[in-house]
Simulated assay, not measured.
Amino acid sequence: MKVPFLSRRKVKSDQEEATRPKSKTREWFDALLFAVIAATVIRGLLFSAYAIPTGSMEGTLLTGDYLFVSKLSYGPRMPITPVSIPFLESRIGESKIKTYWDGIQLPYFRLPGMGEVKRGDVVVFNYPPDAGNNPVDMRVHYIKRCLGTPGDVVTMIDSKVYINNQFFKNAPEAQTSYLVSTDGNGINPELLKDLKIEIFQQMNINDYVMIIPPASFDDFKSRENIKSITEVVTPKGIYDESVFPHNSLFKWNQDNFGPLIIPAKGWTVRLNESTIALYRTAIEVYENNKVETSVGNIFINGKKADTYTFKMDYYWMMGDNRHNSEDSRYWGFVPEDHIVGKAMITWMSTDKDASPLNKIRWSRILREIN
């Protein structure tokens, strides 16, 4: 059958349209679209870049470090809030302007990964106390070291951590605070800067609370005007209401707390006044149950309950800079659905207080994180 003249003309026109060169604007648009899609997939499934804004992990990580975080290590978490602006935090700056729409919320699901969260891993996760303000995957990002995994018993005695009754050694560059007594002569600020020592508080003309890196301790202690250096440890039994679980049944503080069992998926806990104080947030907020107490009885979703079986695994996270870190000691457990990935490499590091020629910390470029 012969093709009509008009049809042949249309076929020719379509061929010409297909072979017609794209405009520069169209080429740039296609390239930009591909780059955004590729970057979104890579960031969502493989790894992300994060910056360290505070000193809670010093000296393992420094303020101004930029990290690559592997999502493959624990398995990529699928988006829970799929409608959001890529590459931005949940809110713009200090404003309340959201970068996402929470009209669609998907159930938590994680693809298989290369392994599981282990004790000692440096982990990026969404900040649990941000619950109620943002969806899980839109909560502020935190970075800490995992000290306890599901089912572990964590205890802290005089600032030393024990997991399942075994001493858990601090990270090599972990820091804490010390009471420093001097002879009254001033301390050279340049010396403190060179030794990376931070004055946390000045008690009087002679005494200071300082955060001293392990590598600087002996050098600083040997100085003529230093009379004594004593580690600051809050004694056992002194109750700090800011410390988890914020209940006077547990007279815990930042240096002495526990023993505390970290919930594991499938673990059944007997409910009473003590356990509901410890695990209520996990049961009610993270696992979406309604918890009520009345005349010594506990009700979950309107039914009297003597036990509860956890639906998720939980972790215990702490900063390496022990007395300058808001961590699990203050807000409790990190649920598995909050885990983002494992910090692997410092790819860039800048010092905002350094001179322009010394802004970049070259020794930290492409440095493995341990």
Rank of each mutant, 00 (worst) to 15 (best):
P4E: 01
S7D: 13
E16K: 13
R20A: 14
A39D: 02
A39I: 11
T40A: 15
L46A: 15
L46T: 01
Y50L: 09
I52C: 13
T63M: 12
F68K: 12
S70P: 07
G75T: 01
R77N: 11
P82C: 11
V83A: 14
S84E: 12
S90A: 14
S90N: 15
T99H: 09
W101H: 10
I104W: 06
P107C: 05
Y108W: 06
G115H: 06
K118F: 03
N126T: 04
N126F: 07
D130M: 14
N134R: 07
V136E: 11
M138G: 14
V140E: 10
H141L: 09
I143F: 12
R145P: 02
P150F: 02
D158T: 03
K160N: 12
N165A: 02
E173K: 15
D183K: 05
N185S: 09
N185P: 06
L195Y: 00
I199P: 14
N206T: 12
Y208F: 15
F217M: 15
D219S: 11
K227N: 12
S228K: 15
E231G: 07
V232C: 13
V233I: 14
G237E: 08
D240W: 03
E241C: 05
F244P: 05
F244I: 07
H246A: 07
L260Y: 13
P263T: 05
A264P: 03
T268C: 04
V269H: 03
R270W: 01
A282Q: 07
A282N: 09
I283M: 12
I283W: 10
E284I: 08
E287W: 11
E287F: 09
N288W: 04
N289V: 04
V291S: 09
G302M: 04
T309I: 12
Y314F: 10
Y315H: 04
W316L: 10
H323F: 02
S325D: 02
S328M: 04
R329V: 05
Y330I: 11
V340W: 08
A343I: 09
T350P: 03
T350N: 07
P356D: 04
N358L: 11
I360R: 06
W362I: 13
W362D: 02
S363F: 11
R364N: 10
E368A: 13
